[in-house]
Design a protein around this nucleic acid. Structure first.
Lengths: 181, 181
DNA sequence: GAAAATTATTTCAGACCTAAAATAACTCGG
DNA sequence: CCGAGTTATTTTAGGTCTGAAATAATTTTC
């Protein structure tokens, strides 16, 4: 894993600009990443609204619950989706009102609220998930398989860099093979 | 640019799964892209709040204005940031109240509102932009230069794929060399 | 075993964001 | 010139999201 300091310096020197505090390349990279993310997100948002009269946060929350057979707590969902607890509470309120989700205190620990999809919720999600998967494939259709694989790999490296820079506070979530995050 | 159909079919067949409508790879790619985007965004959001008592939308809006010497209209900013007009109106209202932005109807067309940074706004932005650039570099520090270049390239390809799938409605914004989007 | 600390969730205030409707200003054909 | 259509922005209603404070339940510590 060790890279000689000389190699790093050489790499630095091969960069276009030589100004000392120049990080324009990383900035451009971030802006492009953000653009891609925003484009996909808003397209999915539009299609969910038009085709299923629902929203992305609701869909994402249901997707988490669908993956768990035993249900999830508010805190678990909040961590998975990387949103605040209060936000989960609010989105769940909407899903409860629509009868798509069930919420009940855990037997052992009455602080904990266990969330599960209702039968209706599972049906509704299944229909949406199928379409959603197609939409995503359609959006990435311009990339060849080797490119998507390479991109996936580099984003994994990016994720590791981010966790390293931010601090491994929530280090209980390694990027395991089956992990879709 | 033409790729023989046979080559594509072969590529398809090399994939792990052979189920007909399987697009799990693209889904995983999207989720990982979203994770990276969310991690960066919320870290920058936190730092902007803690260090400058401001928000990301305000910073992004100011960044757009700073790049333009003659000012920008509400519509232009809205297109650049990929947010609704109404949202720009609201964020600008905050910046106006803080004396960071100036808004005035255009001389020729009084429907149009021209936005510019005030002197105070430029000062404030300059201080933030410097730190912001460092933060981004710090977050990507785990990638080697060759990797950031490769990632930048692949995200460019992704962007093209997205525009192609979504429809080139706003085709007036090509991904030119100096374009930071 | 009860006070203190911790943990899980909700509430709150405030900012963001959207889509759609409303408003205001411009252009253009007749 | 004048009304129909277009364009730029604002307003509105409603959902999303946050951080911090409040509430409630559990665990720890003495």
């Amino acid at each position: 894993m060790e890279i000689p300091v000389n190699a790093l310096l050489l790499d630095r020197e091969t960069k276009a600009s030589e100004r000392p505090g120049d990080h324009k390349d990383e900035l451009r990279l971030w802006l492009r990443l953000l653009t891609c993310s925003t484009l996909i997100e808003s397209e999915i948002r539009t299609r969910l609204r038009e085709e299923f009269k629902t929203t992305l946060p609701r869909f994402d929350l249901m997707a988490q619950l669908e993956k768990s057979t035993t249900g999830m707590t508010v805190g678990e969902v909040s961590q998975r989706l990387m949103v605040s607890n209060g936000n989960v509470t609010a989105v769940v309120a909407g899903l409860l009102a629509d009868g798509l989700v069930d919420k009940r205190p855990a037997a052992q620990d009455r602080r904990v609220q266990v969330l599960t999809l209702t039968a209706q919720g599972r049906r509704a999600f299944k229909a949406m998930a199928e379409r959603h998967e197609d939409w995503i494939a359609e959006l990435f259709a311009g990339l060849e398989p080797a490119e998507t694989a390479q991109l996936f790999h580099l984003l994994g490296r990016t994720k590791a860099s981010l966790h390293n820079a931010i601090g491994r506070r929530q280090s209980g979530t390694p990027d395991s093979a089956g992990d879709q995050t």
